[in-house]
Design a protein around this nucleic acid. Structure first.
Lengths: 174, 174
DNA sequence: CATTTCACTTGCATAACACAAGTGAATGAA
DNA sequence: TTCATTCACTTGTGTTATGCAAGTGAAATG
């Protein structure tokens, strides 16, 4: 089975075992230029697969963590993350998160060469997922640096903590 | 900075920007043979990074979903997942999940050539994370096939639903 | 007006994943 | 008791995603 890339018009082979979605980007170098990654979606309708296809790569949730939990909002701040994301991957992932509607990108009114990346409602709604990660890792990682007071708050007053996060981090969308 | 692989004794270059953990497996083909993936861990202590390094690849949570939500427990059943996991990746991921202590592997008493893969407590404790994925995807994926009654139950009686899951899916560990 | 900052892009290398084919032990039917 | 089939994998090879270093152009700063 062959699928035509909507940008290059090149034909690509697609497996018929599981469907491959070509979203104006694909496998050839010509397409890759405009690619916003990931190139393939499983499209089974399964909610777990959907979430994994949207933010299940190695970096998307790290970026969302930086916005949500650490108040970061610029390219340079994300790049400085201790995990060491590569600059090309960061650019690609920011584009992807924008395409998925999880973050917004606006010029910083105070500095015209700087952009501000902020969570949309859809992006912020991943917060409960992030908090469950914190809870699980705090329980099972002996080397965890998760702050005990935060973990305690997550365990005892999740809704309140979420509300505090919402107030401080969510972009004004209107 | 160089790190010695504990299997091959080969030296590998490790970035000093972010630490790379070599766990009896690494970058050379000699090591790869014994590799259980992933080869690199970020080791920053961050709970989000820890969870991503443990189950943040493309397939681990799909397997856990199959055990947790669909009652699967054999290699063949996982292989038949509609998402179409490749057999080598499945074998690799099962080994990895075992190494991480998320699943157990036992011979099927009824069929000596069959193995049963079941969740440990640590693996089952990812259920809240999985349920948050269901909730988020059900809200944002227009094509979702998530059952409305399940989503409703997750939203209104999460603890009860988790308890039901626990009863039906968790391996007897003692 | 030269220098620095900032948000990227480009080219090339490596790691993760995909696909097809094959293997050996356990089982079941002839 | 042989032989085909099932089952859980392994192996080889190609493709996709990620990593790394270097470079670019526009906006700010001295």
């Amino acid at each position: 089975m062959q699928v035509k890339c909507t940008i290059s018009n090149n034909l690509h082979i697609a497996s018929d075992i599981f469907e491959i979605l070509i979203v104006s980007c694909s496998r050839c170098s010509k397409c890759r230029k405009n690619c916003t990654c990931p190139k393939t979606k499983r499209q089974t309708g399964c909610p777990i697969a959907f979430a994994l296809d949207t933010v299940g790569d190695k970096w998307s949730l790290i970026i969302i963590r930086d916005i949500l939990m650490r108040g970061k909002e610029t390219y340079g701040e994300f790049l400085a993350a201790e995990e060491g994301i590569a600059t090309n991957i960061l650019a690609n992932r920011l584009k992807h998160l924008q395409d998925e509607g999880l973050i917004s990108k606006t010029r910083d009114p105070k500095n015209q060469r700087r952009y501000l990346y902020q969570l949309t409602q859809k992006g912020f709604d991943l917060a409960p997922l992030v908090l469950e990660m914190v809870r699980w890792s705090a329980a099972y990682d002996p080397e965890t640096t998760a702050r005990p007071d935060i973990v305690e708050r997550v365990n005892t007053d999740r809704e309140g903590f979420l509300e505090d996060l919402r107030k401080s981090r969510m972009a004004d969308e209107d």
